[in-house]
């Protein structure tokens, strides 16, 4: 990773917008720890389902960090734990062990209300199945986070909204309902909604999974645009090497561990890494996704 994220002067630095009431960072993660520059960071993350013989380690001690103003893809086969990692990082699910830091905020200690407020203000989501409210227009869907927060559309927000709508090419579609939009348009509305609050990080879960390749490419292009031009941070889960190539960095997950880290990925490199992981997994039966303990041929990588 050589590129310094371009932070436009119009975009405030995310850390300055830490909401009141959110506990401060633990002393261990304060400056000058270089990891604090990360938008979101997982430390020693474990997620275990079941107990005894039926125990499944979905995540088995993951340390990972994602840089601010970066577009990162999390890659892996089905059952590798990539989705679980995303859920933990986004505060949607609780870890069995380990910590998640969003900027200066440690998530695992937050209660439901604090997590909800954090999701409302500091995290954005883009889903595989779009998840728009069918009874709302595109504009109402985009403004939904404000509606939930009960806050007014200030001139500042309106300007940002206009910029998002223009960037995502939704100007003519604002009064349409989701059923009147194509899949790609719906996903663009979802991206606009995710970016409306200028979150610390946007999590995208297979955002192109339900789209044809052209719409998919369009959506990925917009995600990259939102990072490059709007200064946002995006973490995207995908199993598609083509999609991963839009990212600045690809983190590979296998058997509940970080299994590789590729900067400026191309489809070919990513595909080669995925093939290598698959072969390693097949060669070592003990490391099947369900029970993986000692696998991890590649050391876990601390970003930057």
């Amino acid at each position: 990773m050589s590129q310094t994220p371009p932070v436009p002067s119009t975009v405030p630095t995310p850390t300055t917008r830490t909401p009141a009431g959110v506990p401060g960072p633990p002393p261990a993660s304060s400056h000058p720890d270089p990891a604090a520059a990360a938008a979101v960071r997982g430390v020693g993350l474990r997620k275990t389902y079941g107990r005894g013989d039926a125990q499944v380690h979905a995540l088995d001690g993951v340390d990972v960090a994602f840089g601010r103003g970066q577009f990162t893809a999390i890659m892996g086969a089905s059952g590798s734990g990539k989705s679980t990692l995303l859920h933990l990082l986004a505060g949607l699910d609780s870890a069995t062990a380990g910590q998640v830091h969003l900027g200066d905020t440690e998530l695992t200690s937050l209660d439901d209300n604090a997590l909800t407020e954090l999701r409302r203000k500091r995290v954005g989501f883009v889903f595989q199945s779009f998840n728009l409210l069918p009874m709302f227009t595109a504009e109402q869907n985009i403004l939904l986070p404000l509606e939930l927060a009960g806050s007014k559309v200030t001139p500042d927000v309106r300007a940002w909204f206009d910029r998002l709508v223009t960037t995502l090419g939704l100007r003519d579609r604002l009064t349409h309902r989701p059923s009147e939009l194509s899949g790609g348009q719906q996903q663009r509305v979802a991206i606009a909604r995710a970016l409306l609050t200028r979150p610390d990080v946007v999590f995208a879960d297979e955002p192109t999974g339900n789209l044809d390749s052209r719409s998919g490419a369009e959506v990925l292009e917009f995600l990259r645009t939102s990072v490059r031009e709007l200064g946002q941070t995006v973490v995207m889960v995908t199993h598609d090497a083509q999609a991963a190539a839009y990212a600045d960095r690809a983190v590979l997950v296998a058997d509940g561990r970080i299994a590789g880290d590729v900067a400026d990925p191309t489809p070919e490199v990513v595909q080669a890494e995925l093939d290598r992981l698959r072969t390693a997994s097949l060669a070592s039966p003990a490391s099947t996704p369900a029970r993986g303990v000692a696998a991890g041929s590649t050391p876990a990588v601390e970003a930057r």
Partner: peptide
């Protein structure tokens, strides 16, 4: 689904 989405984008319980 709708309720889960609302919770995701910041609706409190």
């Amino acid at each position: 689904r709708t309720l889960a989405l609302l919770r995701c984008v910041g609706a409190t319980k």
